[in-house]
Amino acid sequence: MIEVTDLKKIYLLGEVEVAALRGVSLSIHKGEFVGIMGPSGSGKSTLLHQLGLLDTPSSGKILISGTDVSRLDDEARTRFRLLHLGYVFQDYALVSELTVKENVAIPAIMQGRPLDECYMAATAVLEKVSLLKRLDHLVYELSGGEQQRVSIARALVNRPAIVFADEPCANLDTENSRTVLELFRAVNRDLGQTVVMVSHEPWHMEYFDRIIFIRDGLLDTERMEREGKQSR
C-alpha cells in the first residue's frame, strides 16, 4: 500500500543543511497497524509529513496505492489527502472558528456530502472519542487532550484508507490513550483502514502489528531486529 524508497529530507537553515531524513526505505501493507518510534528529533514527524503528503521530499520516492505521490502537483495532493488520507497532527491543527462538530465534519463537507449527513457522521466519531458533550463548543474552550481527540475524530470521519497519527496520545491520560488506541485498532480491524502512528510510549507497542524504529533520520534496523526477536 505504501512504498518508500530512499526518502531524504534536508532542511536548509540559512547555510546549514539539517538532514531530517537521510535515506529511508520501507513498505507498509494494506490493513496494517504500524507504529513509528524513535527518540525525539529522530525524524518521526518528518517521515509522517512525507507519507501524509504534507511536505515534499528532497529526494526519493513514495508510492501510495500505486500512485507516485511525490510527482503530484499541489492541487492533486490536496485532493489525494481529502479522498484517501486522514491525519492527526501533533499539535492538533484545529480550525479555531469552527465548533468541535464542524471541525470534524469539514472533511466530509468538502466531499460534497449533505450537511446533516456530515454532522451525523461527525457526531458518531465524536461519540467514539467521548466528546458528545462538547459538540458545539469552540475549540479554544477545550483542554489539550480534548482538542487532540477532536483532531483524531476529524482524521477518521471520512473513513480514509490510511490514517496517519502523530503522537495522538501525547496529551491524554492512560485511560483516554487506551480509548484512542482501541479506536484505531477497531477501525483497523473492522473497516480495514491502514493506521500509521507515531509514538514514544513503550506500552503502546502491544497495539501495533509492526514497529518501525528510526534514529537520526535513518531506519534503526538494529533495534528492529532486536525487538523483533524479543516479541517472537
Partner: peptide
C-alpha cells in the same frame, strides 16, 4: 496558520 490547516485537511486553495 488557519489557512495551512484548512489546506492540510484537504480543502482546495480556490475554496
Amino acid at each position: 496558520k488557519q489557512i495551512g490547516i484548512l489546506k492540510a485537511i484537504g480543502i482546495r486553495k480556490q475554496i
